[in-house]
Amino acid sequence: MAKRNETSRETMTLNNQAPELARSEAPSELLRELVAHLRQNRTQLREEWVVRISETRLLTAMTKEEIFAEATSVYDSYVEALETEAFEALQAYARNLSERIIPRGVETHEVVGIVLLLRDVLARSLFAKYQTDFKKLNRILDAYEPAANRIANTVAVGFVQERERVIRQQQEAIRELSTPVLQVRERLLILPIIGVIDPQRARQLTEQLLRGIRTNRAKVVVIDITGVAAMDVTVANHLVQTVEASRLLGATVIVTGLSPEIAQTLVTIGVDLGKMNTVGDLQGGIEQAERLLGYKVESLAEPR
């Protein structure tokens, strides 16, 4: 990070090396002046920013008070980042913000939008302050712009990173909800599938099922896909292959709980219905499996 700061300072120096500008202040001094200006006008600039935010209809999912509170902390971290050129704090803040407001339905473009708005508001105030001294304005902007752009970048990246981290975490959680192969009766297995099946998960399922058939010496397997809303052609084909592979191991597969969409997919790929044994729901599937295995389930109590 220290190294990156150095390079950023270098670029700033390069920007300032326009020969016609006789410089009296080093860029760091300019930044200090800038920060002092932003601190002095904190209340007014922040107000202006909040007004601009509501004008552009950003952060509509949040209340006015919340926007004001967020604006205050963003403003302060912003100024601090300008002053210290340390972006970690701001990045951490962006992550934290992301964690807090994504569930509220705040979109990435809104967060990027408000940071860019703040950049513009501050730039405008600089124009207003140095309108009489054009050269100085130029130098101040030279110092301000790279830092401001980096801040916008940092916040956006931090926000998106957090979002991606959450998505990754959720994907892992879904994958870890491994699909159990359960024995309900002697020689009868059920495989309830819930959630989205991607090709990778489909392969894992098949492996588990075939191994389960072998270790439990199953004769009948009920695959319940009530919890699967839809599957693409690849996965549907995989399901058919799983059924056939199970047959090669001597087990009959009953598929239950096909949604209309999945039925449509299976018909589209032209599945051989003679090979697919399907029953409407899991209960029906288990009942049929019991019949195949020669079980007869009776109620002990006399029917009243």
């Binding site: 492996e207 191994r211 592979a245 090669l248």
Partner: peptide
């Protein structure tokens, strides 16, 4: 036919040898 291994079974199905 008895004793087809699970891996073999799935490979066969993928090759269309059912």
């Amino acid at each position: 036919i008895v004793g087809i291994q699970p891996e073999v079974a799935f490979a066969m199905v993928q090759l269309g040898l059912t």
